[in-house]
Simulated assay, not measured.
Amino acid sequence: MSHAPVSHETSGPEPDNLRTTVNTPGALGLYFSVNAFLSRICLQVAVIGTLLIVAAVLYQIFGRYILNDSPAWTEIFALVVMLYTTCFAAAVGVRDGRHIGMDSLLNLAPPVFHLLADIIVYLGMIIFGLAMAWSGSELAVEMAPYINPGLPISQAWSYVPLAVGGLLIALFAVERIVAAVLHIKVIPSWH
Results as ranks from 00 to 15, higher is better:
residue 25 P to Q: 13
residue 6 V to I: 15
residue 55 A to F: 15
residue 21 T to M: 09
residue 159 Y to S: 13
residue 122 Y to Q: 14
residue 77 F to R: 00
residue 166 G to F: 13
residue 19 R to G: 04
residue 12 G to F: 04
residue 138 E to N: 14
residue 168 L to I: 03
residue 61 I to F: 08
residue 109 A to T: 03
residue 179 A to G: 01
residue 33 S to H: 12
residue 171 L to K: 00
residue 163 A to P: 14
residue 115 L to P: 04
residue 41 I to D: 05
residue 102 M to K: 03
residue 137 S to F: 13
residue 110 P to A: 05
residue 67 L to K: 11
residue 73 W to H: 05
residue 23 N to G: 01
residue 152 P to E: 10
residue 172 F to P: 00
residue 98 R to E: 05
residue 66 I to D: 03
residue 134 W to N: 08
residue 130 L to K: 04
residue 178 V to S: 03
residue 189 S to N: 09
residue 60 Q to C: 06
residue 189 S to C: 08
residue 100 I to K: 11
residue 25 P to G: 09
residue 190 W to C: 04
residue 118 D to E: 12
residue 56 A to D: 07
residue 99 H to C: 02
residue 69 D to T: 01
residue 133 A to Y: 02
residue 169 I to M: 14
residue 103 D to P: 00
residue 114 H to K: 09
residue 47 V to H: 12
residue 58 L to E: 10
residue 20 T to D: 05
residue 13 P to W: 10
residue 33 S to D: 12
residue 134 W to T: 04
residue 104 S to P: 00
residue 36 A to F: 02
residue 127 I to R: 06
residue 129 G to R: 12
residue 31 Y to A: 10
residue 105 L to V: 12
residue 135 S to N: 13
residue 49 G to E: 09
residue 9 E to M: 07
residue 124 G to I: 06
residue 152 P to N: 10
residue 28 L to D: 03
residue 90 A to S: 03
residue 74 T to N: 07
residue 134 W to P: 04
residue 3 H to C: 06
residue 76 I to N: 08
residue 83 L to N: 07
residue 59 Y to W: 10
residue 111 P to W: 09
residue 82 M to C: 08
residue 189 S to I: 04
residue 73 W to C: 01
residue 29 G to K: 05
residue 183 H to C: 00
residue 63 G to I: 02
residue 174 V to A: 11
residue 45 V to E: 06
residue 131 A to G: 06
residue 166 G to T: 08
residue 26 G to E: 13
residue 164 V to H: 01
residue 94 V to S: 05
residue 135 S to C: 09
residue 95 R to C: 01
residue 69 D to L: 05
residue 87 C to P: 00
residue 36 A to L: 06
